[in-house]
Amino acid sequence: MSRKTLLGLGLGIIALLLLPLFLPRFYVYLASIILLYGLLATSLNLVLGYGGIFQFHHAVFYGVGAYGTTLMLMKTSLPALCAFIAGPLVSAAFGFLLGIICIRLSKLYFGMLQISLGSLVWVIVYRWYAFTGGDDGIHGIPMPEMLSSPKSAYYFTLIITLVSLFIMWKMIRSPFGSVLQGIRDNPVRSEMIGINVRRHQLLALVLAGFFAGVAGSLFVVVDNTVFPDMLFWTLSLEIVIMCLLGGWFTFLGPMLGAAVIVALRTFVSTYTDYWALVLGITMMLVIFFLPSGILGYVEDKFKRGFIEPEIEEQ
């Protein structure tokens, strides 16, 4: 990393830390949502962009993490910290379970099976009123005193997101990350030189599931609700769009994509009910005119350019 990038990152983090001092309550909430969606999209990009695995139903792990945390908070008297650790762990376990069923299939086949099996999880959550609250979801989840104000929720989200991003960044730079990218670029050759392709991919799926679960737990902190739509398949494809829009071969691209889409959704929704139409047309434009995403485009233009990290701001 060059000194310039480091400086930019530092400035960006300081800006994010100071953000709640200047912004009204709603925008603090919005910034938290953007951060956690960014984390979610980045975790997807770990397997989609860097792993080349067609993880089409990523929202399952997000939703499972959120429900795991919520149910631990509501149904047990363990300290809240346990709930926040349990949520992501349950997601990781789901990542392993779905991964081991789907991993034998390749590319699109994998993705289609995952969408279908993920929908099974959705159906169970949607129907099981006694345990998950069914289609109403669960509202007014009690939070520990420390996290109950929007500002503290924002800081909590910010710190966890930054730590998670740092861990993922390190992971991509590690030998494991290189192997993963090698598998993406040439699975046959990777197999030939003695890499256990399936095991690496499975580990990536578990890790991606874990961080999606972290994002889900953060949503519980920020919004104090869970609902079954959090693991509906349309959300999953929206996350894929975030990765694509920001640039799915760049590390911060998904974060940028999440920021753009969440902000756009918030503002479009205040004017019209037809958000899906706007999103659909945006997607078509991106697919045709910006296939490597915003950051991908910027990188192509300026090669080793300086990337503004203050993207989470409005």
């Binding site: 993705g111 494809l237 899906a276 139409l277 659909g280």
Partner: peptide
Amino acid sequence: MFQFLYEREHLMLLLLTFAFSLVFGDLVKL
């Protein structure tokens, strides 16, 4: 639209169909 993308990644085609499903859904509502 689709005919221009056959050479590209399948992921793009899938996402294009998803974009269409969003647009169609809202058009039906309209």
